[in-house]
Design a protein around this nucleic acid. Structure first.
Lengths: 249, 249
DNA sequence: CGGTGTCTTGAATACCATCAAGTCTTGTGG
DNA sequence: CCACAAGACTTGATGGTATTCAAGACACCG
């Protein structure tokens, strides 16, 4: 992650950043293994894994030359830029996530992928991946189920943006992220603390609000004892309370 | 599963499906034909096509017993209901549309499908459809590309709801529908008039606004000479102007 | 004919955006 | 290591967009 932190923080971070591709196997897709196989068969293991510093753009629509990137380490976001400078984040990408399953079919997405933290990612050759998946129906099914989840989250976001208040949207985002991080063993079991590299403008761009208003809502959550945010880490102090705010039902 | 279908039966089914779903073949998926094949092999042609009156619910999450419905005729909407009574429309379903490609994998959607006009639809058996698609990679690819389009539209809606004004959202919805209807030859070539069964509350639920505000925006569009709405039909009088309002770029 | 659903319009209100100023943190170069 | 600049966050004041509430016009249907 971005350089100097206190020794304690460094340790804390290191504990979970050992999520190299070893951990990747725990995630839904096992795509790292697929990627490794691809790289192997293409004899291009060296070039297939790349590292990108925080705040840099990983790929735009144009420079996807038939590659399907998957996130090995770090946080990223797929972002739609509008001509007036405003942005909408479609989804946050966590380790083990594929940028978009649609890339399997050469569908140019209208968005770009931006690194939030330092990101290590791996590009799978589209044609090769397709070949592998189509020859192994069970693996294809796993892949498509991940795609379903991608779509389900998009649908949820539509409901959030269309019909929920600022408090609800933000609470739901936090709970969603907590759930996804838990599945990846990226939440400390006892303290429930988790790394949280998002700036408030990321949250704002994800839930369709302004950074100022996000700040106000988060302050309110903090005053209510629902969450604790400090040093780029988040703890949900009162999950039930937060869920109540989120209208989870 | 009476596997053997006599040539006569095939002909019979094909003829009947042609008569009812004549237009369907023009659409992206040709799924009516697939459906016909399924119905044939399942020897249940009679029960596979159903008609539902306007405003009725076609299916809920619960009563999807491994079936994938496709719309043959009429307009429908997939809707998410919230406990406070508000609603969000995820997408409008037009003839030839599959309700959701995700149903192929038994993913229970958390939405229900509602008929807007009288709707004729056909249910394909999930397992059978899956079998057919997995045995024909080219057909599977067509299917998955329709899925990509479904997802791309969802992403667009996220951007609309998150970052655009009421005028932009409504203009974009109208333009999107016009485009989809054009592809289906459901727009009169000369007059550019099209059937438009949506009530304003449908539009409101689709773009995350209230019916009152939709009414005001549509009146404004009408006053500006952008559109004409009457007798459940819509004409885009000034496509360029409407596109300008929509910030299409 | 009353009833229901749809649309319109106006007034009051709520929610969130914008603007602005200030604090604190983070990063960088001297 | 410090100084300075840039970015991130907070907080209050003000304004705009969309909601809510309400009343009335209109069409459609049993």
């Amino acid at each position: 992650m971005t350089a100097s932190a206190t020794p304690a923080a460094t340790e804390f971070i290191a504990a979970r950043v050992h999520s190299t591709c070893a951990n990747c196997l725990k995630y839904e897709l096992n795509l790292c293994r697929v990627a490794a196989a691809c790289a192997l068969s293409a004899d291009s293991a060296a070039q297939s894994a790349r590292t990108v510093p925080a705040r840099r753009i990983i790929c735009r629509e144009q420079d996807l030359h038939g590659e399907v990137p998957i996130i090995c380490e770090g946080w990223a976001a797929s972002v739609v830029m509008l001509s007036d400078g405003s942005r909408q984040i479609l989804s946050f990408l966590l380790p083990g996530d594929i940028v978009s399953a649609a890339l399997l079919f050469d569908a140019r997405p209208q968005c770009l992928v931006e690194a939030i933290t330092d990101v290590r990612y791996r590009s799978i050759d589209r044609i090769e991946l397709k070949g592998i998946l189509f020859k192994q129906p069970d693996r294809l099914e796993t892949f498509l189920k991940a795609w379903i989840e991608e779509k389900a989250r998009a649908d949820q976001l539509i409901v959030d943006l269309g019909r929920r208040t600022a408090e609800e949207r933000i609470a739901r985002l936090l709970l969603n992220l907590e759930e996804r991080l838990t599945r990846r063993d990226m939440v400390q079991p006892e303290s429930k603390e988790m790394e949280f590299p998002l700036r408030q403008h990321h949250i704002a761009d994800a839930v369709g609000l302004t950074p100022v208003h996000v700040s106000k809502v988060l302050s309110e959550f903090r005053r209510g004892g629902l969450i604790k945010i400090s040093q780029r880490s988040l703890t949900v102090l009162d999950p039930a309370g937060l869920r109540r705010v989120a209208h989870m039902r």
